[in-house]
Amino acid sequence: MSLVLDVMLALAVIGVAGWTLLVRGNFPAVIGFVAYGLLLALVWVRLGAVDVALTEAALGAGATGVLLLFAVVRLRGGKAEIDAATPSPPQRVAAAILCGVVGLGLAVAMLNLPDPAPSLAAEATRHLPLLGVGNPITGVLMAYRGLDTLLEAVVLVFAVLAIWSMAPDRRWGAIPGPLFPVQSSGPLSLLARVLPPIGIVVGIHIAWVGADAPGGKFQGGTILAAMGILAWVAGLWRLPPVASRGLRWAVVAGPLVFIGVGLLGFVIADGFLSYPPGFAKPLILLIEAAMTLSVAAAIVLMVAGPPERPA
């Protein structure tokens, strides 16, 4: 029975992926991409990787989908820009062959894994009590492979900088993104007033339980960002100008705390990003809290785009 479900799910993922690639028109393609991300999240649940599923649903389908939708709206009428950025047929064929070969290689490698496949899962779980966290994924992300996560965190700051640097000189320091009219009544106004209190609690909860259950800063931060975007689109919250010190601190707080705790490791533990025994959990929670804020701020700013309205 579960095999039938898995095969149907796999076929649906491949079918939606193919449809997304082949469909004419940017808007349906984005909708296809979001559906593909949500189906992929179900695949991760079937594989028992609930953390990855949450990330795929929140960031892969949700945040990326919104980014692409904004891009589609901004590109309306910009035929010259779209033509200039569209790859030629030979380039597309080359990309298709490359993706096909990589996909095939991965499939062959997966099918030829020895049984049982080599795994560090037992090792990762064995050392968890030292860290004081219950979720092995968090152990890997924050302790065993903390450096990778630090680099991911820093990438967010660079992404925001790259988007801001698209602004024309005279708009530097201005308010990012388009201006949405205030919705004083209607369905969007209701949703933007009712949902954020619930969403903020859920976002903080998901970031908090990440220590012991599936969740964490990226998933929780994305939900917080979604609440901000909802209030902004409904005209109920004005984004601060990019010159705002508070906004800039919000974006860099997470990576700064992460690097700070990492450097502290030289003094109080064995080196960069190492935690002193018995004190790992509070430090991990400190980083996660600051990172949740920065992830939320960075995603809102990525969706809003470059500064374009005078403050």
Partner: peptide, 9 residues
């Protein structure tokens, strides 16, 4: 809530 809002819009 989300479905009703999206549909209305």
């Amino acid at each position: 809530l989300a479905g009703a809002t999206a549909t209305q819009m």
